[in-house]
């Protein structure tokens, strides 16, 4: 029983990075984009994704480990399609240092907070700053206040979200993964804002 490590790098030519989606050809009509969800644990990132990708909502909390990968394609009215390759990251503190692994090279970042939790709003601002410092410069950022169905427990005013998003050039929306409210709108709006490759 040794601990000798065998580096897999000997054939690293085959190793595709998290950013270089193999065969990821985007043309003007069929976009393919990498999207990352960031935010505090328990704000509902996975619920948003599962609602969007599978139309499901599971109220039992399943803590995400590392990051989950899902994809979903939507068709826009101008007959273009957008395939989202979604990295649903874990909100736990121990994974914070690994976030660059997932947001590096992402075209879209969705930063989520819980409208009933000011702490999660503060955490969202941390992620926005982090992305501004280390993300790609032309990244499309969305600020999402989730759990909009819990309006009676709201602690983060809508206006705070709007103001912060505006100041940072972000798109803002409040959603409820539970009721499916604004979930599709979120992703459609993102799709519309994507920079289109110049058609040749």
């Amino acid at each position: 029983m040794g601990c000798s490590s065998s580096l897999p790098d000997r054939s690293s030519g085959q190793l595709a990075g998290l950013n270089s989606e193999n065969g990821g050809v985007s043309d003007a009509k069929n976009l393919r984009v990498k999207l990352v969800l960031l935010g505090d644990s328990g704000v509902g990132k996975s619920c948003i994704v599962l609602r969007f990708v599978r139309g499901q909502f599971d109220p039992t909390s399943k803590v995400t480990v590392g990051a989950s990968f899902l994809s979903q394609t939507i068709a826009l009215q101008d007959s273009t399609t957008v395939k989202f390759e979604i990295w649903d990251t874990a909100g736990q503190e121990r994974y914070a240092a690994l976030a660059p692994l997932y947001y590096r090279g992402a075209a879209v970042a969705v930063v989520v907070y819980d409208i009933t939790s000011p702490e999660s709003f503060a955490k969202a601002q941390y992620w926005v700053k982090e992305l501004q410092k280390h993300g790609s410069p032309d990244i499309v950022m969305a600020l999402v206040g989730n759990k909009a169905d819990l309006n009676e427990k709201r602690e983060v005013p809508v206006q705070d979200g709007i103001d912060y998003a505006e100041k940072n050039g972000m798109f803002f929306i409040e959603t409820s993964a539970k009721t499916a409210d604004n979930i599709n709108q979120l992703f459609e709006e993102i799709a519309k804002r994507l920079p289109r490759p110049a058609s040749s």
Binding site: M1, C3, S5, S46, L50, T60, K62, V63, T64, V65, G66, A67, S68, F69, L70, D88, A90, Y95, L98
Partner: peptide
Amino acid sequence: SSESFRTSESFSPICLPRYN
């Protein structure tokens, strides 16, 4: 024991204590 692995494919850092 981590339910989230059942939902979709995942990529996670783990350490094997006896390995390194």
